[in-house]
Design a protein around this nucleic acid. Structure first.
Length: 486
RNA sequence: GCUCGUGUGGUGUAGCCAGGUCCAUCAUUGCGGGUUUUCAUCCCGUCGACCCGGGUUCGAAUCCCGGCACGAGCACCA
């Protein structure tokens, strides 16, 4: 593979992984199951998943559910996330790990750390230690012997300490330039009697829980993770974990980071905040179309492939960026347009009686360019059609794929089959071939259900469609269609 | 404050490590036009950028130094 250096040629796809051998790459995506996946999570799962695919490697879906009080896990999220992950990836993650199932493993490494003297039990309060950290002072607890540490550790396990009274720290160096790395905390005590873990098997079984940096570091090693790709907010995590790896004599995986992404139209959302807002009734649920969740996006017609293309295009740069939704929409249109059946939805329908029409059925193409999608047959036995009120301002109209008509009051007099002039072309449907339905759309932060007449169809729920002269949408119920985007 | 990171058109992105072939790629958006029995799709055209200042060099978006701006971490959250 003597690839010539090509300048000015757009590199396509994701950049190459460093030190990656095809077939031996192990990546992971590790969400906190304190809610279902949101837009930002999609980046993590898609980028890691794409690399796993590209390198014939493995992707681990890991639930980092080690906090029971600040961001407590949500029981339903475990299943939801697995389904959403599969939807986003287009394949099932190769392995699944739940941190709360692995506490005993983490304990083994704590003991190893204490025995090795590179960790210690610290009885200082968080505030006291903060002062030590700022002033680069060694904490007195650093002086405990390995034996004392092991005893204190037992004390943490058996309930001799209350939450906040003792933590296990990784011994680094209080003189480290980066304050974040100084003797960082590895495990703490949680009151799991008051705040049990939501998983039945776990519940109140453990009092001592690892913190992210310890849990993640040990688990990455146990799973043989070779590459970690995550947000740059976790850069200091990498540095902390590298110090631990050095203590254990392990080799740290290759790392890559991406910057912060904001979507102009959404502003700031956090899983915890959404959870509160849903519980307080501000939103209808996790799939509320106003929320930036995967459930919301898929429910309103965004395709997984569009999301994949979108995130792959953004790549893994460390820049903090703000993207407009238009970019995602444009990807979505590319995915769906060729196969999206055209369908009529009449807003503020006005019934017109046809005059001078003999046929009882009109056949129009399901898709103007994709003839393979066949035709739609509109029944006209009652000779009544619906058009939008707004179109009534014109007294001469062309009903699309039907004919030219002159409008007088509530009658539409047939003029000609072919075009006779440049009169406006409008979409329409008939009384016989339509149903009462709603168009669900978010307007100015409100969910609007606009009643109207929807052309009868046999399309399955979740079929993306193009709503003539309105935009793209998705069949979201028997008599409901949800607007996706223009 | 300390630590770390990032600065390419309106928005993203390629190029930067290995300096010239870069009057800078591609996409998206805007604008203009074309096709079209949808205000869709598609096609064509067009506007538009290397944070600033020095330095090295025949030559700098690319290397060096210094500014500035923005962001993140410094949680017994993930």
């Amino acid at each position: 593979m003597l690839e010539q250096r090509q300048k000015q040629a757009k590199r396509t796809g994701l950049p190459e992984l460093l030190n990656a051998e095809k077939g031996k790459v192990v990546l992971r995506f590790a969400p906190n199951p304190n809610g279902p996946l949101s837009f930002g999570h999609a980046r993590g799962i898609i980028i890691n998943g794409e690399y796993a695919k590209e390198y014939d490697g493995e992707l681990i879906l890991r639930f980092d559910d080690t906090d029971t009080s600040v961001k407590p896990p949500m029981l339903e999220a475990y299943d939801l996330i697995q389904k959403e992950a599969e939807w986003l990836l287009g394949f099932v993650p190769h392995r699944m790990v739940i941190a709360s199932d692995r506490i005993e493993h983490y304990y083994q490494y704590v003991e190893q750390m204490l025995n090795g003297g590179f960790g210690y039990v610290c009885k200082c309060s968080a505030e006291t230690f903060r002062e030590y950290r700022v002033s680069m002072t060694e904490c007195p607890c650093r002086a405990y012997s390995n034996l004392e540490n092991l005893e204190l550790w037992q004390g943490m396990l058996d309930g001799s300490f209350q939450p906040g009274e003792a933590v296990v720290r990784v011994r680094t160096d209080m003189a480290l330039k980066n304050p974040a790395l100084r003797d960082w905390p590895a495990l703490r005590i949680q009151d799991t009697e008051t705040n049990p873990h939501p998983r039945k098997d776990i519940g109140s079984r453990y009092r001592v829980w690892p913190l992210l940096d310890f849990q993640s570091a040990v688990e990455d090693h146990l799973q043989g993770v070779t590459h970690i790709i995550r947000g740059k907010d976790l850069m200091d995590s990498t540095r902390k974990q590298k110090l631990l790896y050095e203590h254990f004599g392990w080799t740290y995986p290759e790392t890559m980071y991406w910057g912060r992404v904001k979507v102009h139209e959404w502003g700031g959302f956090s899983t915890s905040q959404m959870r509160k807002d849903i519980e307080s009734g501000l939103f209808e649920g996790w799939s509320d179309p106003r929320l930036p969740t995967i459930a919301s996006l898929s429910g309103s017609g965004i395709q997984a492939t569009a999301l994949r293309n979108f995130w792959i295009e953004l790549g893994v740069t460390q820049k903090d960026i703000a993207v407009p939704l238009a970019t995602l929409y444009s990807h979505n249109i590319k995915i769906i347009d060729d196969d999206a059946p055209r369908i009529a939805f009449i807003r503020e329908p006005i019934a017109l009686t046809l005059e001078g029409v003999n046929e009882t059925i009109v056949e129009l193409p399901t898709h103007p360019n994709t003839t393979g999608l066949g035709t739609r047959k509109i029944q006209l036995h009652d000779a009544v059609v619906y058009i939008e009120k707004a179109d009534l301002q014109h007294k001469t109209l062309r009903l699309k794929e039907f004919g030219d008509f002159d409008i007088e009051g509530n009658t539409a007099r047939f003029v000609a089959k072919e075009r006779t002039d440049k009169r406006k072309i409008v979409h329409w449907t008939s009384k016989n071939s339509s149903v009462d339905a709603s168009l669900v759309q978010v307007i100015d932060g409100e969910i609007c259900r606009l009643d109207g007449k929807l052309e009868s169809h046999q399309l399955a729920v979740n079929t993306p469609v193009q709503i003539e002269r309105i935009g793209y949408g998705i069949i979201s119920g028997d008599n409901e269609i949800t607007f996706t985007h223009d």
